[in-house]
Structure formats: structure tokens, C-alpha cells
């Protein structure tokens, strides 16, 4: 039982060690390309929300695309 407690304590310490601050491998001054507007995952949310709505009302699948909407499917 004591061995088990020691193992649990060591495991907890190991986990805590894993929570040490992570060193960013892409430094803030290396993010020039990522900050370019052409790298935005969704540059025009109003436009992509509309297209999600168009597709969502004509397809069986929806979700996981970040879109929002509601209302008609417009026969």
C-alpha cells in the first residue's frame, strides 16, 4: 500500500512537472507571416456564415465550420 502511495505521489509530481511553462517554439517576432490578413482562417465571417447557411440548407451535414444561422431552408 505504501509503495502504491509513493507511486501515486511520484505520478503527481511528474504531472506537475509537465505543467512547467512551455517555451513557445514560434517567437512573437517570428509571426509576421501569420499576422498577415491573408492568413486569417476566416477573413470575412459575414460571407462565410452566409455560405455555411446556403450549404447547410441543401446538405444533410452541418456543423464544425464555425458558422452561425437559423431559419428557413428555402425550398
Amino acid at each position: 500500500m505504501r509503495v502504491l502511495r509513493v507511486l501515486v505521489a511520484l505520478s503527481v509530481l511528474q504531472l506537475l512537472g509537465a505543467c512547467a511553462p512551455l517555451e513557445p517554439w514560434v517567437k512573437p517576432y517570428e509571426r509576421e507571416h501569420l499576422a498577415d490578413p491573408i492568413m486569417a482562417l476566416d477573413r470575412n465571417p459575414i460571407s462565410s456564415d452566409y455560405l455555411d447557411h446556403v450549404f447547410g440548407t441543401r446538405e444533410g451535414a452541418h456543423g464544425a465550420t464555425g458558422g452561425a444561422g437559423g431559419g428557413c431552408g428555402c425550398n
Binding site: 455555411d52 447557411h53 447547410g56 440548407t57 441543401r58 452541418h62 456543423g63 465550420t65 464555425g66 458558422g67 452561425a68 444561422g69 437559423g70 431559419g71 428557413c72 431552408g73 428555402c74 425550398n75
Partner: peptide
């Protein structure tokens, strides 16, 4: 009209 799409989370 017919509403088909579930309301998706933003």
C-alpha cells in the same frame, strides 16, 4: 418554407 439546418454554434 422548410428549415433544415440545425442552428449551428458560433
Amino acid at each position: 418554407t422548410l428549415r433544415i439546418a440545425a442552428l449551428l454554434a458560433c
